[in-house]
């Protein structure tokens, strides 16, 4: 394998270093004056203050529920099929027919529905593929976690009554 030499001769200005240092110090001084004398802010006071993101922002996932707090998901596996990151894992089962007022409409349900959020790329394909409008991406962007285990969202975590887009 050949190598390409990309080194070049430095110009006189570059060799002296001093002009670059002065240039940098001028910027520092400018920001110092703006901040301390004119109180101009470049950051916000999060979490008291929030940025206003787009209505179409894709954040934390949730599974919508109906009026009886039963998930709308029927474990059709379309989100698992379409997911490019392969981060959705579903196990399906039959809903107990005795406690199923919906009849044939909701006879299939997810036994477990896990999303590995550390793998997820928030493309929103699952939301697009879902025929029951069950899985959605909310506008919640506060996804920080303390351990890798928390990065797997299970059905209990996902099942939420959310108004609008959250």
């Amino acid at each position: 394998m050949g190598t390409i030499n990309v080194s070049r001769e430095y110009s006189v200005k570059e060799k002296m270093f001093l002009p670059a240092i002065i240039q940098g110090m001028i910027i520092t001084l400018k920001r110092f004056i703006q901040g301390f004398i004119f109180h101009k802010k470049y950051t916000i006071m999060y979490p008291e203050e929030r940025r206003n993101y787009s209505q179409r922002f894709r954040g934390m996932h949730f599974i919508s529920v109906d009026e009886n707090k039963v998930e709308n998901c029927t474990a059709c596996f379309l989100c698992e099929t379409v997911c490019p990151a392969e981060c959705i894992h579903i196990v399906a089962e039959e809903r107990d027919s005795a406690s199923n007022p919906y009849g044939v409409r909701k006879e299939k349900k997810p036994l477990s529905f896990d999303i590995e959020v550390l793998r997820c790329c928030f493309c929103g394909f699952c939301e697009e593929a879902c025929p029951k409008d069950a899985i959605k991406l909310s506008r919640n962007y506060e996804l920080s976690i303390l351990s890798r285990q928390e990065g797997i969202y299970d059905l209990n975590h996902l099942k939420r009554e959310v108004k609008g887009r959250g």
Binding site: T74, C76, V104, R105, E107, P131, K132
Partner: peptide, 11 residues
Amino acid sequence: HPLDCPVCDKA
């Protein structure tokens, strides 16, 4: 036809 392909195993 009920068009319940998401639940149907034949889909």
